[in-house]
């Protein structure tokens, strides 16, 4: 865990009073109602909450896929709330890695090429092969998504997310579509990346058991951060059960 001078932890994200309101015609849905949170460098944070609690919205805002209606979101001092589309694209391109529940791989590209699709446009990427080795898929490099299992596809997605050496890795229900066995392998891959590359990682889940692998757990409900707890006894994914 890296410490900033003076002993304070270095924040990758600072979110203060973030609200998000969706205008759905005549109804206004408040997805976030003044959320405050930080993601610190190198940590593995789990964002826990029931569906509809606003965790995906928060993650999307952190990742530059969406903008806050009010409040401030900063990425290493850079104001994400008022960034233009061009700036957000550049931000995603250089700094953020995403992993989704439904992998979202490009079916027409092999595992290696899916990763290369990102490394080709990044500024200081690792080799696609290296990224795939990291998630344990060195031998599946030339397979197309249709030739891979769900867990393998998700690990390609992780390799694709981290190949650019992002500062943050954002995972939205990465094991949501997987069984326990494969889910564990995917979580191990995420943990490996966090540990070996020091990538600040946020994992969204509604599965409280997964929180066991986090260094910090943020609980969300109804658009608020309801509590933050430090996890002093981190467990390896293999020891988690759900």
């Amino acid at each position: 865990m890296s410490l900033a001078p003076g002993g304070a932890r270095e924040s990758v994200f600072e979110a203060r009073g973030v609200t998000k309101t969706y205008d759905m015609g005549e109804v206004r849905v408040q997805a976030l109602r003044g959320a405050d949170m930080d993601l610190f460098a190198g940590e593995l944070m789990v964002l826990l909450g029931p569906s509809g609690s606003g965790k995906s919205t928060l993650l999307n805002i952190l990742g530059g896929l969406d903008t806050a209606t009010a409040g401030a979101v900063r990425y290493r001092g850079f104001d994400l709330t008022h960034a233009t589309d061009r700036e957000l694209t550049r931000y995603r391109r250089l700094h953020v890695g995403f992993v989704f529940q439904f992998y979202n791989l490009i079916p027409s590209l092999t595992a290696r090429e899916n990763v290369a699709a990102v490394t080709e446009i990044a500024s200081n990427p690792m080799k696609p092969e290296e990224a795939l080795e990291l998630v344990g898929l060195g031998d599946r490099m030339h397979h197309f998504p249709s030739q891979l299992s769900g867990g393998q596809q998700q690990r390609v997605a992780i390799a694709r997310a981290i190949a650019k050496r992002p500062s943050v890795l954002l995972c939205d229900e990465p094991t949501g579509a997987l069984d326990w066995e494969t889910g564990v392998v995917v979580l191990e891959a995420i943990e490996t990346v966090n540990r070996e590359l020091g990538t600040a990682t946020a994992v969204i889940t509604h599965n409280a058991d997964i929180a066991g692998m986090a260094s910090r757990v943020i609980h969300m409900s109804n658009g608020h951060i309801s509590s933050v707890e430090e996890n002093t006894a981190r467990r390896s994914p293999r020891d988690l059960h759900w």
Partner: peptide
């Protein structure tokens, strides 16, 4: 649209 959106998320620009 799905795979194009994925690429946008990965940081591809609109032109790309």
């Amino acid at each position: 649209s799905r795979e194009l959106a994925s690429l946008r998320v990965l940081g591809y620009t609109r032109s790309e």
